[in-house]
């Protein structure tokens, strides 16, 4: 993999992201409802003149292309606009929510990989065994269960029936570790704040398992099917003929070949999850990006929704890019 390829591939992202900004902006522009009226909705005594003045101040009286140009110039300067409802820079709002989502995503992905890869590999190697049947059935179940339902069931069981795990939020009030990265697990370890670490882990378990389950199901199925192909390759037999044990052959020769499709699926999934999972974050009152978006939609906070959609799109495109890079690392034949 050459530096030229990386740069080239990176430059290709620019038109994509540019297109995304256009679509996002157009969608918000075309959405019925006047943002200025939303702003003044709660305030009595605002005259039509006030509204008009404010509209001018925000630049909403300008034609579409001028508004769009200002939006893009703002973006380039890292300015995502001001939240109409909260009257704060949208960037700060997003940044304050991002760590929660990143933390949840990371743990959910970890959970899913820990389940999916061993189960997928064993299922393939011992095809049609009881283990394989259990794994495949479990995967079907995992894909079929909607996140909100699984989340509610886990809450009922672990949170309410057995009462062993907290069911909402990231951490109890006042226990937040000192802010360094915003990721509570990392911050609490860095500051040696073990009660906070423990609390953060306990809060993470249910939402992460909820998110991780459906992802694990998908990942396991991909891993199983690619491993099934690999198991019958000549190089697997040749590796056995060298004197390696069955496990060594699978781990050293099989896994790396089999994981190539898995990487694609997992990275796209991460792209989706990093956008914040609206459903799971809402169910577990997780203060992440997803919940911010849901709240903003309810409040008609257009600038926040607009920025969040933009962040989703960029994250997704970036994960795609990273997936390509990892691909080339795993598969030397992809010389780019």
């Amino acid at each position: 993999m050459s530096a030229a390829y990386i740069i080239n591939r990176f430059l290709q992202l620019i038109p994509v992201v540019f297109g995304v900004t256009l679509v996002v902006f157009a969608l918000m522009y075309l959405t019925p409802g006047d943002p200025v009226e939303v702003i003044f909705a709660g305030e009595s005594g605002a005259t039509a003149e006030d509204l008009e003045r404010y509209r001018r101040e925000l630049g909403l009286d300008q034609p579409f292309h001028i508004q769009y140009l200002r939006f893009v110039i703002g973006l380039l300067q890292g300015d995502l606009g001001i939240s109409l409802v909260q009257r704060q820079p949208v960037r700060d709002l997003l940044l304050s929510r991002l760590p929660a989502t990143i933390e949840l995503t990371a743990v959910a992905v970890l959970v899913s990989l820990i389940i999916a890869i061993p189960v997928g590999v064993v299922s393939a190697v011992q095809r049609y065994s009881t283990l394989d049947k259990l794994g495949t059935a479990g995967a079907l179940l995992g894909v079929s269960m909607p996140d909100f339902w699984l989340g509610l069931v886990l809450m009922l069981l672990f949170g309410i029936h057995w009462g062993v795990l907290p069911i909402s939020g990231r951490i109890p009030w006042g226990m937040e570790p000192q802010h360094i990265t915003g990721l509570y697990l990392v911050d609490s370890v860095l500051t040696g704040d073990w009660p906070a670490f423990r609390a953060a882990v306990r809060h993470l378990i249910l939402p992460a398992v909820t998110l991780g389950t459906s992802m694990a199901a998908l990942t396991m199925r991909v891993t199983r099917s690619s491993m099934l192909e690999v198991v019958h390759q000549d190089y697997m037999t040749f590796a056995r003929a060298k004197g390696l044990s069955g496990t060594q052959v699978v781990v050293r020769h099989g896994l790396r070949n089999a994981l190539i499709p898995t990487v694609t699926v997992v990275s796209l999934n991460i792209g989706v999850l990093l956008g914040g999972n609206m459903i799971v974050e809402t169910v577990f009152a997780w203060p992440g990006l997803g919940r911010l978006v849901v709240d903003s939609i309810y409040n008609r906070d257009y600038t926040v929704v607009q920025a969040a959609v933009l962040v989703y799109a960029v994250t997704y495109v970036t994960m795609n890019f990273l997936a390509d890079l990892v691909y080339t690392l795993l598969n030397p034949k992809v010389r780019l």
């Binding site: 000549d234 190089y235 037999t237 040749f238 020769h253 070949n257 034949k333």
Partner: peptide
């Protein structure tokens, strides 16, 4: 033991 097709018998990623 050696096999017929050296392309498929050597592991492509190692």
């Amino acid at each position: 033991m050696i096999f017929q097709d050296p392309l498929t018998t050597l592991n492509p990623v190692l």
